[in-house]
Simulated assay, not measured.
Amino acid sequence: MAQELSIPQLGVTMTEGVITEWLVEDGATVQQGDPLYTLGTDKTETEIESPAAGTLVILGEIEVDYAVGTVIGRIE
């Protein structure tokens, strides 16, 4: 079963974020806890880890503003 990757809310006032870099290639096999991408906000940049093991499918593009909760990929 695929698990969706969505933009997390890293702070109480956070409403959107920007993927500044994908750290793993589309189609790569990842393990739970592996860093997937860097998420930029108005205050910081944070590496976001994989919530599960499987194959990464990238849907989100770098340097695009995404609202919290937007699906940007999935682990299959």
Results as ranks from 00 to 15, higher is better:
residue 13 T to V: 08
residue 18 V to F: 04
residue 40 G to R: 14
residue 13 T to S: 13
residue 59 L to Q: 12
residue 53 A to E: 07
residue 57 V to E: 11
residue 30 V to H: 03
residue 11 G to Y: 10
residue 64 V to A: 08
residue 63 E to R: 05
residue 61 E to D: 15
residue 12 V to R: 01
residue 48 I to T: 08
residue 20 T to R: 13
residue 74 R to E: 10
residue 69 G to P: 06
residue 58 I to D: 00
residue 18 V to W: 05
residue 36 L to K: 02
residue 13 T to F: 06
residue 38 T to L: 07
residue 49 E to L: 07
residue 49 E to P: 08
residue 29 T to F: 05
residue 38 T to V: 15
residue 61 E to Y: 04
residue 75 I to W: 00
residue 75 I to G: 02
residue 51 P to C: 01
residue 44 T to V: 15
residue 34 D to H: 04
residue 43 K to W: 05
residue 49 E to I: 00
residue 64 V to T: 15
residue 19 I to H: 10
residue 9 Q to R: 11
residue 10 L to M: 12
residue 57 V to P: 07
residue 15 T to I: 06
residue 69 G to N: 08
residue 55 T to P: 06
residue 36 L to N: 00
residue 29 T to M: 05
residue 25 E to H: 15
residue 5 L to V: 02
residue 9 Q to H: 04
residue 42 D to Y: 04
residue 41 T to D: 09
residue 69 G to R: 10
residue 27 G to I: 10
residue 68 V to Y: 01
residue 45 E to G: 14
residue 50 S to K: 00
residue 62 I to H: 03
residue 76 E to M: 03
residue 76 E to N: 10
residue 30 V to N: 07
residue 28 A to H: 02
residue 6 S to D: 14
residue 55 T to E: 09
residue 10 L to Q: 10
residue 38 T to M: 01
residue 54 G to T: 02
residue 71 V to K: 14
residue 9 Q to F: 06
residue 44 T to Y: 00
residue 55 T to G: 03
residue 48 I to S: 09
residue 8 P to L: 07
residue 42 D to S: 12
residue 70 T to Y: 11
residue 65 D to F: 10
residue 65 D to N: 15
residue 13 T to H: 11
residue 38 T to D: 12
residue 69 G to H: 08
residue 22 W to E: 06
residue 54 G to Q: 02
residue 70 T to W: 04
residue 38 T to F: 01
residue 10 L to N: 10
residue 50 S to D: 05
residue 50 S to I: 00
residue 27 G to L: 04
residue 26 D to W: 05
residue 30 V to F: 13
residue 5 L to E: 06
residue 2 A to S: 10
residue 12 V to Y: 12
residue 20 T to G: 14
residue 30 V to Q: 02
residue 64 V to G: 03
residue 6 S to A: 14
residue 54 G to H: 01
residue 4 E to L: 13
residue 65 D to M: 05
residue 60 G to E: 05
residue 23 L to R: 04
residue 4 E to D: 15
